[in-house]
Design a protein around this nucleic acid. Structure first.
Lengths: 147, 147
DNA sequence: CTGTATCCACCTAGATACTG
DNA sequence: CAGTATCTAGGTGGATACAG
């Protein structure tokens, strides 16, 4: 996911430099949630927790399969901080830690459902569009391509 | 957006190294769509095109406010390739180019609506969770924090 | 088991200058 | 106007080693 080096919502006092008659910048209303929910690993992690329930660190690691423990830790920490997952620590030897999705995390389910639906319905269209774009073939009368 | 250096969907033949009794890795079903739709700038761009309709490069640039022309070009190219936006080139002097959202791009509207709703309903909860996490205060009996 | 600590690779994006 | 060319910065993520 984007790391948001500049604000997704431009400073409200900033106003467009000057010049032309373009409507003043309005903020994209879904910027923050995108930063919170979507990154390379947050969706797979949330999905795994949602689908398989409360589980230990290693289970999660194995379930996702290609993630490293370092990154899994990083993502889980952020998600815990954001209130999307809950971490329970059992002071045993060897130590045991369990992660589960929180109510807040679970509230993302409808979002995931919509995403899955869109994916199901339109992913093939995207791939088709890419093939068409990449093909050396014709360029329409008005719509152009790369030089 | 994640650049997906490794597949979001682990190679199906790969299987978890060996060992334990964890369920085999199943793929997070929404990985690809996340890569297509969510990045630092794709959402603001799509939102601007959806909200203000067909417009020229500079209008878009001013509307979004903080994006540079280089990045705007990059993102628009990718979105054009993915079939989410349409580009129309008018060979005039000075040149004129107009961008608009495609039907495929418009099909993302319900998704954006759900995101906006979730944001409206839960963003404050996230911020609250962060404040609680960052606060030096109490740690519950089982749920832990950073060391 | 559950992480940390390093080091490195890659990508996105910002700043700036320049072109047809 | 609509980009391209360069350079730089910063973050996420990968690989590996190691610790409590």
């Amino acid at each position: 996911m984007p790391y948001t080096p500049v604000p997704r919502t431009p400073a409200s006092g900033a106003a467009v430099p000057s010049a032309t008659t373009v409507a003043p910048a309005q903020a994209c209303p879904i910027g923050p949630v995108v930063d919170i929910v979507f990154s390379r690993w947050t969706t797979p992690i949330l999905w795994a927790l949602h689908t398989f329930g409360r589980q230990r660190f290693v289970e999660l690691e194995r379930r996702i399969g290609t993630i490293t423990s370092k990154v899994l830790t990083q993502r889980l920490r952020q998600m815990e901080r954001d209130g999307l997952v809950l971490r329970t620590y059992y002071p045993e030897v060897p130590p045991r830690v369990e992660y589960e999705i929180s109510d807040l995390g679970r509230s993302l389910s409808p979002l995931f459902a919509v995403l899955a639906d869109w994916s199901q319905a339109n992913l093939e269209r995207v791939e088709e569009a890419r093939r068409a774009y990449d093909a050396p073939g014709e360029t329409g009368p008005v719509t152009s391509r790369r030089p």
